[in-house]
Design a protein around this nucleic acid. Structure first.
Length: 368
DNA sequence: CGGCTGCAACCA
DNA sequence: TGGTTGCAGCCG
């Protein structure tokens, strides 16, 4: 089975009006990448009945003349995958936003990242696509926006998360450290809330440390000049039985973040984030009864010890032979950490399984 | 959990 | 010959 993706079109506040967005008599959002449909889509029937443009037929003619060959389209299409949806920036070759829905079911399962590979997104026009080569030896890691770990229930869904349309150049230490802990935190929210909706993406902010004018400055990497964002953001909405309860917006610098920093250090008002990204994230959400996430929940990220225990637990789980198992377990002593009951049971269970596996392997060798 | 690299095997 | 692929081993 191949991964399914469908192309759709971003719908905002005026979603009910089908597709054309009109503001000050300027169509600024293209209704379709199929520009042959332009004439049809500019017909007044799709504009709001009281729109001023309808008062002046000449304005419509002007648009037709100027936009004879179509409305310039800047990535307003969005892409739908098995378990995430995204809008893509064809100039920067990274996503604009990536939306996902987490619940207790879809963050669990047997899908394994070892079976997935990073690759260009086949649904993105080639010349606008990032390549693995762009990232190779660039000094930046390929950071998932919708993390692989959020697609554990389905291998195909996880594979789709490895398309480079879901990836931005991310600082190594940030990716495996603070951001990783942030992602784990979001997954764990599904233990407390029935539905968790997350929108993740890159954001480009001016360097505030320098004197003088504010300048947005960012590296580009590889032949394709993939843009390296200065910051990453997450918008997290927690729901209980279909009712939105809590919302948090966070902006984290794309650089190493130590254990001394808390998630609450990175809270930003949703409106500020929307202004910086140019994206209206949850246009249909009524915020009146929604509380700040970190007032409803602790927003606690794993501490250094908790995080290292978590990693060793995963390494035990991942171990495919006794060598790997013992090696991972020995790290506990090295780091002066005490295993909890779960970990001891996991180790014992895993040790039995792998010993059996080893015996089977030896038997097969003898038979050959 | 999140990643990277090198190397051998394979194929057109 | 160059390009892809899978695997082992490494890191935080």
């Amino acid at each position: 089975m191949s991964t399914t993706f469908i192309r759709g079109f971003a719908s905002g506040t005026f979603a009910s009006m089908a597709c054309v967005y009109v503001y000050n008599t300027r169509v600024f959002k293209t209704p379709s990448s199929d520009n042959r449909r332009l004439d049809e889509e500019l017909k007044p029937r799709i504009l709001p009945a009281d729109h001023p443009m309808l008062e002046d037929v000449n304005k419509l003619e002007t648009q037709r003349r100027i936009l004879k060959y179509g409305i310039p389209d800047r990535g307003q299409e969005y892409y739908i995958y098995d378990n995430h949806v995204l809008a893509y920036d064809q100039a920067k070759k990274i996503p604009i936003w990536v939306a996902e829905h987490l619940n207790a079911q879809n963050v669990k399962g047997s899908a394994n990242r070892k079976h997935s590979k990073f690759k260009p997104d086949p649904s993105v026009n080639g010349r606008f696509n990032a390549e693995n080569d762009d990232y190779f030896k660039s000094g930046w890691s390929r950071g998932h926006m919708s993390p692989a770990g959020n697609h554990k229930f389905n291998q195909e869904a996880m594979n789709a998360s490895f398309f480079l349309s879901n990836v931005v150049p991310q600082n190594f230490e940030n990716n495996s450290g603070f951001w990783n802990r942030f992602e784990i935190y979001c997954r764990n929210l599904t233990k407390k809330f029935t539905d968790v909706r997350v929108i993740t993406g890159p954001v480009f902010l001016p360097d505030l440390e320098e004197d003088g004018p504010a300048i947005v400055k960012y590296p580009v990497i590889g032949k394709g000049q993939v843009a390296v964002p200065t910051h990453l953001y997450k918008v997290v909405l927690a729901e209980l039985d279909g009712k939105p309860i809590a919302l948090g917006a966070f902006v984290v610098p794309n650089k190493p973040i130590g254990f001394d920093k808390k998630l609450t250090d990175f809270i930003v008002p949703l409106e500020t984030l929307e202004e910086k990204t140019g994206v209206e994230f949850l246009p249909k959400l009524n915020l009146s009864n929604v509380k700040p996430l970190c007032q409803v929940d602790s927003c606690h990220l794993k501490t250094k010890d908790e995080f290292e225990l978590h990693i060793i637990t995963r390494q035990l789980n991942r171990a495919e032979n006794l060598d790997q198992l013992y090696k991972a377990y020995s790290k506990l002593e090295k780091k002066n950490l005490k295993p909890d009951q779960y970990m001891i049971e996991l180790f014992t269970k895993k040790e039995m399984e792998l010993k059996e596996k080893q015996l089977l392997g030896e038997r097969e060798k003898k038979e050959l």
